[in-house]
Amino acid sequence: MPNNLEGKVAIVTGSGRGVGRGIAKLMAEEGAKVVVVDPGVNVDGTGFDQSIAEVVVGEIRDAGGTAVACTESVATMEGGERIVQAAIDNFGRLDIVVLLRRDPARPHGVQHDGAGVGRRDRGPSERTFTVVKHACILFRQQRSGRVITFSSQSGLVGNSGQANYGAAKSGIAGLTKVVAKDMGRYGVTANAIAPRASTRMIGAIPESAAEIRARGGVASLSGDGGGDGELQNLDPDGIAPFVAYLASDYASNVNGQTFLVYGNTVSLMSQPRPEKAIWTESGHWEMDELSARARGYLTAGIANPAPAQQR
């Protein structure tokens, strides 16, 4: 389905490698003009390599597409504004922002400076906001636009050993839902993707995270396939087609949703909604009544994801 993004201008952050690279190249193939944003940092957030973004731009141009490189950082509001301005300066408009953060999963309280949840740097949800804020100013004025963020299953349903990472990615999913409600009236959509793919980030996931799950008898997120080991076999380019779909006119009615995307599978994730409830006629619970009714109905049959282990 070529040219589904003809005439569109897209910003893709973190698009020098991995999932982002595939998205930038497919969007260009579909007719979009692309701002390839990547400062070329290492996994731990150090370093700078302008050639990382420029190589992807060269590949797009060699294939007949249109793209420019941008090495601005999303870590500051000023950087986010300059990224948006790069689209305007080079192509005169902006229609799509795809916001990837290459944040390696870290266990519990372990932190690192730079690309992930750092001590001194902004967190991933804040970094996402630096671009979204400035893009949405334009989107509101033109009454159209697409915002596509990247969350994680760790943030959506939890994954033992990844507290910082899960909290950050949950924040991105929540931010996306707020943007969807705030901007929907202007014809703008905002949706999140939880990807599974084999990238250099997989090598940054400490073995201790998997060890913690195994030691505690806790299942990983791979109960339905796509576990820690299986990620090694998932092509990062496989995420791009669904991102391009969300960016296209075909998805104009899709707003505030989260999708799990991996391999040959795309799943719509359920929205948090009340499932069942109990109430009391007196207006105030007494402990005996509450305990009996909660145990007999509200919490009956709930499985413990991390059951206590026998010593």
Rank of each mutant, 00 (worst) to 15 (best):
Y262D: 08
T280S: 08
P195E: 08
L231M: 11
R196W: 10
P195T: 09
T258A: 14
A190G: 09
S267M: 14
E207I: 11
L290P: 00
L221M: 07
E211P: 03
A197N: 06
E207Q: 12
T176L: 00
A167K: 00
P274T: 07
T265Q: 09
P195Y: 09
R185M: 05
T280M: 04
Q162Y: 04
A190T: 06
M183R: 03
G174S: 07
V188N: 10
A247M: 01
K177E: 12
A244K: 14
G203P: 05
T176R: 01
G263I: 06
Y245I: 02
V179L: 15
G256S: 15
V243W: 10
D182P: 00
E275M: 07
V178T: 14
E230H: 05
V178S: 13
L175Q: 10
A251K: 08
S222M: 05
R185I: 14
D182S: 01
A251Q: 07
S220I: 01
M287F: 05
Y245N: 09
G166Q: 06
E211F: 07
S198T: 03
T199Y: 00
T176G: 00
W279K: 06
G171M: 04
G263H: 08
M269E: 15
D228P: 09
T176F: 00
A209G: 07
M269F: 13
I239G: 04
R273S: 11
D249Q: 07
A204M: 01
T265C: 03
R293N: 05
P272I: 12
A277N: 06
L234K: 00
A194E: 12
V178D: 11
S208R: 13
N164T: 03
A192V: 04
E289H: 04
V178I: 11
M201D: 09
G225M: 09
K169M: 01
E281W: 12
L290G: 00
I172A: 06
D224I: 14
R200F: 09
M183A: 06
L290A: 06
M269T: 13
A277V: 05
D228L: 10
G166F: 02
I212P: 02
K276H: 02
V243I: 14
Y245W: 15
A292V: 08
G263R: 10
R215K: 11
R185S: 13
S198F: 04
R200A: 13
G217Q: 11
V254F: 04
I172M: 07
T265W: 05
S170C: 11
A197S: 10
Q271S: 15
A214V: 04
A194L: 15
P272R: 10
A180L: 03
T258Q: 11
